[in-house]
C-alpha cells in the first residue's frame, strides 16, 4: 500500500478551528446574514479509531463531516491529514487525499446512480484513480462484492433490484474499493430498519478490523453511536460542547446539554424508570446564535457569565473535554 506509516501517537486527522458559514441572501441576491453551521470545531482522530459525532438536526454534524472531506470548502480553519492542510492541496495530492478519505452517505436510494450496474458503480472509483488493468479491476470488484455479502452474479444488477440494507452495503463497498484510511459515515443506518441496521453495523465493525480503518461516524442515534464509537463529540448549534471516550461520556456526562440529550433517549426497557431532563424551548436559529454560551437560553444552570462569555473547551479529565462555565 502507498499509505505511509504513521506513528501511533500522531493523530491521523486533525481538525483545527473549523468554521463554515453559509450566506443567507434576500430575493435580490444580497447577503443579509450567515448561517453559522459549524463554528470553531476542533478535534482529532487516531488511526483505526471510530469517532462519533452526535447532536440534533441542524447542529452542524453533517456539515463538519462534509467539510473535513472538502466536499464543502470551509470558511476558516484547517484539517491536517498526514501533516498537510487538505484545504490547500491541489492536483495529484488532492486526488490522493480523496482516495484515502472516503464517504458513506445517509440515503442508500439517492447515493447510487440508478442507471449503472453495481459492478460499474464499484469499478468507477478505481477508474477515476487509475488503479489496475481492466481485468484486475473486475477481480477486485468481485472480491469486494463477496466481502460485503453478495454473490458474484450480482455484479450486473442495477441498484433498484436491491433493498435499502443491501444498497447501503454497496455504498460501503464503494468506499472500500480504493483502500481508504478513513471513512466518513454520515448517518449510514438512519434510513434502515432495526434488523437491517444491525447487519450494516456488524459489517462496518468487521471491515474496520480487517482494513484498520478509522471512522468519523456522524449520527443522531445515541444508542448506535454508543455501540460503534470509541470516542464521542457532542455538538450543539455549530459548536462542540463535550468530547469524551464513549463509556465515560455515558457514565458521566458533564455538559448540561449532553445530560439532557442522554436522558431524552427512550430506553427499550419498561423496567427502567429514569429521571428525565426536559429542555425548555427550542434550538435557537444558527443565523443569530445566542451570545456567550450558545446553550444558555435553554440551560437549567445558566448564570450571568454564560450570557456574556463564550466558554472555552478544556480538559476536565484526560481525554474528557467540556465547554461549560460550570467546570471552570
Amino acid at each position: 500500500m502507498s499509505v505511509q506509516q504513521i506513528p501511533i501517537e500522531q493523530p491521523l486527522l486533525e481538525v483545527r478551528n473549523l468554521k463554515k458559514y453559509f450566506p443567507v441572501t434576500n430575493s435580490l441576491g444580497k447577503v443579509t446574514g450567515h448561517v453559522q453551521a459549524v463554528n470553531d470545531v476542533s478535534f482529532n482522530m487516531k488511526k483505526g479509531e471510530t469517532y462519533g459525532l452526535v447532536g440534533e438536526s441542524g447542529c452542524g454534524k453533517s456539515t463538519t463531516g462534509r467539510t473535513v472531506l472538502r466536499l464543502i470548502e470551509p470558511t476558516e480553519g484547517e484539517t491536517i491529514y498526514k501533516g498537510e492542510n487538505i484545504y490547500q492541496l491541489k492536483g495529484r495530492k488532492l486526488m490522493d487525499m480523496r482516495r484515502e478519505l472516503q464517504m458513506v452517505f445517509q440515503d442508500p436510494y439517492s447515493s447510487l446512480n440508478p442507471r449503472k450496474r453495481i459492478g460499474h458503480i464499484l469499478e468507477e472509483t478505481l477508474k477515476i484513480h487509475r488503479i489496475g488493468s481492466k481485468q484486475e479491476r473486475m477481480d477486485r470488484v468481485m472480491d469486494m462484492l463477496n466481502k460485503v455479502g453478495f454473490q458474484s452474479e450480482q455484479y450486473f444488477r442495477y441498484p433498484h433490484e436491491f433493498s435499502g440494507g443491501q444498497r447501503q452495503r454497496i455504498g460501503i463497498a464503494r468506499a472500500l474499493m480504493v483502500d481508504p484510511s478513513l471513512i466518513i459515515c454520515d448517518e449510514p443506518v438512519s434510513a434502515l430498519d432495526v434488523s437491517i441496521q444491525s447487519q450494516v453495523l456488524n459489517l462496518l465493525e468487521e471491515i474496520q478490523d480487517e482494513f484498520n480503518l478509522a471512522y468519523l461516524f456522524v449520527s443522531h442515534d445515541l444508542s448506535v453511536v454508543r455501540h460503534i464509537a470509541d470516542r464521542i463529540g457532542v455538538m450543539y448549534l455549530g459548536q462542540m460542547v463535550e468530547e469524551a471516550p464513549t463509556d465515560e461520556l455515558f457514565a458521566q456526562p458533564l455538559h448540561p446539554y449532553t445530560k439532557a440529550l442522554l436522558s431524552a433517549v427512550p430506553l427499550p426497557n419498561p423496567m427502567i424508570k429514569r429521571e428525565r431532563i426536559t429542555l425548555k424551548g427550542e434550538v435557537p436559529s444558527p443565523i443569530n446564535p445566542p451570545s456567550g454560551c450558545v446553550f444558555h437560553t435553554r440551560c437549567p444552570h445558566a448564570t450571568e457569565i454564560c450570557k456574556k462569555n463564550v466558554p472555552v473547551k478544556r480538559n476536565v479529565a484526560p481525554n474528557h473535554a467540556v465547554a461549560c462555565h460550570l467546570y471552570e
Binding site: S198, S223, H227
Partner: peptide, 30 residues
Amino acid sequence: FSSPYHPYTDGLLKSIPQLTGDRSKKLHVI
C-alpha cells in the same frame, strides 16, 4: 420486553444497540 414469545420479537429486541450494559458484543442479526 422481559420474555418475548415469538422468535421475530425476540430477534428484534436483540438487534437494537443498547444504551446500558455491555457494548462490546456483536449485534444480533435477523
